[in-house]
């Protein structure tokens, strides 16, 4: 009986190991396929030149540029707000007050909103309300009330707000309370303590959140489809009211709407590879920083 029980047990344990291995396998197959098919086309030209001949030749520099511009605008918007929200929640708010609970509820729910709904929001609010309103107010034709970098970046900022808030709060929580007490006992005020002692120590964790949000911002397509991304533009965006090319959006359109799939295949794979490298690299860095910080804390450094 014992033997059969043990066999049964080993069987189930083995199944869980199998499940883990399946995940590894999925990862290897996907990344492997993309690397294998895409690495041939990666070259200096590919990264620095614009596409030609209906996306069958040339490079994807505009898409890279657009993605970077988008993400920079996004982080300028989301990082201060997210960090300050985390500071408020962790350092100032009384933990069970109605306001605190509401903020947490809002942050949690923002995290679950589908990305296409953000796209709808960007369209319905930023472009058609704020943008159109601004055009009206300034007596312009159509400058702000159309898809552009600004609104796409703000839409992504809202989407990534929970990421920054959660990572920042975790970082603040990790700062031991004795340090705060020591600061207060020396006569420092709350903000002085936060600025001089807590935030510097929480910085790596905050950075992790920022990097993760950048990675997510670079990869999401649905929120920018109708708020500013375009498939082909003969110019690079140089003001926030410009439209922009973007890596993820480029992949989507090329993969689903190319007239000649075989001809665009190399560029398509190359673009996917670039996007993948970008997002995975950012994720690696963020995970690395986070685990280094966690290890440091455990060792009491």
């Amino acid at each position: 009986m014992k033997l059969r029980l043990n066999f049964f047990g080993s069987f189930f344990t083995g199944l869980t190991l199998l499940a883990t291995l399946i995940i590894f396998a999925i990862l290897i197959v996907i990344i492997g396929n993309i690397v294998l098919q895409g690495h041939k086309i990666i070259s200096w030209d590919f990264i620095t030149k614009a596409p030609r001949e209906g996306m069958t030749a040339g490079g994807i520099f505009p898409a890279i540029f657009g993605t970077v511009a988008l993400v920079i605008l996004m982080i300028i918007a989301v990082l201060p707000v997210g960090v300050m929200t985390a500071i408020y929640l962790h350092e100032y708010a009384k933990s069970e007050s109605a306001l605190t609970k509401t903020i947490r509820f809002a942050v949690n729910n923002l995290a679950g909103v589908p990305s296409i709904v953000f796209g709808l929001f960007g369209l319905g609010f930023f472009i058609q309300f704020v943008g159109a309103g601004m055009d009206n107010f300034f007596g312009l034709e159509v400058v702000w009330g159309q898809p552009c970098l600004m609104w796409a970046a703000l839409t992504l900022a809202l989407l990534n707000l929970p990421v920054v808030v959660v990572a920042s709060e975790e970082a603040l929580r990790a700062v031991p309370s004795e340090i705060r007490e020591a600061s207060f006992a020396l006569g420092a005020t709350k903000w002085q303590t936060i600025r001089r002692v807590v935030l510097p120590q929480a910085l790596p964790g905050v950075l992790t959140g920022a990097i993760l949000s950048i990675s997510r911002g670079a990869g999401e397509v649905a929120p920018i489809m109708f708020t500013g991304a375009a498939y082909f533009l003969p110019y690079l965006p140089h003001k926030p009211t410009d439209q922009f090319m973007e890596l993820g959006y480029h992949v989507y359109v090329m993969a689903t709407q190319s007239p000649d799939v075989e001809a665009t295949k190399p560029i398509l794979y190359g673009t996917v590879l670039v996007l993948l490298i970008l997002t995975l690299l950012l994720n690696f860095i963020a995970i690395f920083i986070r685990s280094k910080v966690r290890r440091q804390m455990r060792q009491g450094v």
Partner: peptide, 8 residues
């Protein structure tokens, strides 16, 4: 304090 708490 009882347990020393120097800043990092």
């Amino acid at each position: 304090f009882q347990k020393s708490n120097p800043f990092p």
